[in-house]
């Protein structure tokens, strides 16, 4: 017993000595964890992994991507916000941060984070099966209007998720009840699209990159996107605005840390992320997969999140999706 105590004492002393030395090393001197609130294989995961792989060589430390999934994003977003603000835990914050607190799932808001950079925004598209009788968004909306509520069903994400909001907002702007096309919740865009191909639902609202492989395969067609300009890789798909419906909605992704990141960390990461964002490696990856590229630094990102938060909140209240 005595021997053990002595051993422990020695160990503790050695530790303290080493600990002192460590404090002087520059950030980062150990691996960084990048939390992704969504599952492996999805868009947020893919973009996070490419970012991490490009950050690693520049920082000289491993950047480990950790998927903290579940709870419609609440679990991962909480994990980022409640991590130690030392710069060794960062995360990808997504559009849902401006929605979850309105629907009463969590108290977290964008103000619980230190924003770093915004790197991606994708507008929602309106997809239907390739054999569907509608070839334009007008025909689809006219069909919805002329038939009893509930004739068509839509899917693309969970109940009250971003693509559900996209559909409800579009219907409302087009002068119909927002739930005239009932929402079939799914675990994400991919299962929703598969159900579209299998004939289980009639419409899927989700971003174009999510639908791209099925569009290329000739299984699904996109009737419109909810953006202010057409997408570069799908120049034939009109915007809703062109069709006279003043409605835009997109999902975005950005890198953030918990509230109160040290200045040193922010000053190291922001220029690096800006450089990565401009690099060919990142640009090629994003455009190949059809992800929309945007960029905002910390201030711009914060203002963007504030605005997103307000507009999502007011839409959700109007649609009766806020609590």
């Amino acid at each position: 017993m005595l021997r053990r105590t002595i051993l422990l004492g020695c160990a503790a002393a050695a530790v303290l000595a080493l600990g002192m030395q460590r404090a002087e090393a520059a950030y980062p001197d150990r691996p960084i964890t990048l939390i992704v609130p969504w599952g492996a294989g999805g868009g947020t995961d893919a973009t996070a992994r490419i970012l991490a792989s490009l950050m690693e060589p520049a920082l000289g430390q491993p950047v480990n991507v950790v998927n903290r999934t579940g709870g419609s994003g609440v679990v991962g977003h909480s994990a980022i916000a409640t991590a130690e603000p030392d710069g060794y835990t960062l995360g990808i914050v997504t559009v849902e941060i401006g929605m979850m607190h309105w629907s009463g799932l969590t108290d977290l808001t964008y103000q619980d984070y230190t924003p770093l950079v915004l790197y991606n925004e994708d507008p929602s598209g309106v997809q239907v099966g390739i054999d569907a009788p509608w070839s334009t968004i007008d025909e689809l909306l006219a069909y919805v209007k002329d038939n009893p509520a509930g004739t068509l069903k839509a899917s693309g994400t969970g109940q009250g998720g971003i693509w559900h909001l996209a559909l409800a907002g579009m219907l409302k702007t087009a002068g119909m009840e927002p739930d005239r096309v009932p929402w079939v919740p799914s675990e994400g865009a991919a299962p929703g699209l598969q159900d579209l191909v299998a004939g289980g639902v009639d419409v899927v609202t989700c971003s174009i990159p999510e639908a791209q492989s099925l569009i290329d395969a000739g299984r699904v067609k996109s009737l419109a996107i909810m953006a202010s300009a057409r997408a570069d890789n799908f120049p034939d798909v009109p915007t809703l605005e062109e069709e006279g419906i003043d409605w835009r909605l997109g999902a975005w992704r950005g890198v953030a840390g918990p509230k109160g990141l040290p200045e040193e960390v922010v000053n190291t990461l922001v220029p690096l992320l800006e450089q990565i964002h401009a690099s060919d490696d990142f640009r090629n990856f994003m455009t190949d997969r059809g992800y929309g590229m945007v960029f905002e630094g910390p201030e711009g990102f914060e203002a963007f999140m504030a605005e997103s938060n307000e507009s999502l909140g007011s839409v959700m209240k109007e649609l009766g999706m806020a609590k």
Partner: peptide, 21 residues
């Protein structure tokens, strides 16, 4: 965890970890 159909937390007793199931 959170039921994806209705967004209703079930048997989580307020725990964020349990929300994920």
């Amino acid at each position: 965890g959170i039921d994806i159909m209705a967004g209703q937390p079930r048997f989580t007793f307020g725990s964020v970890e349990l929300m994920g199931g």
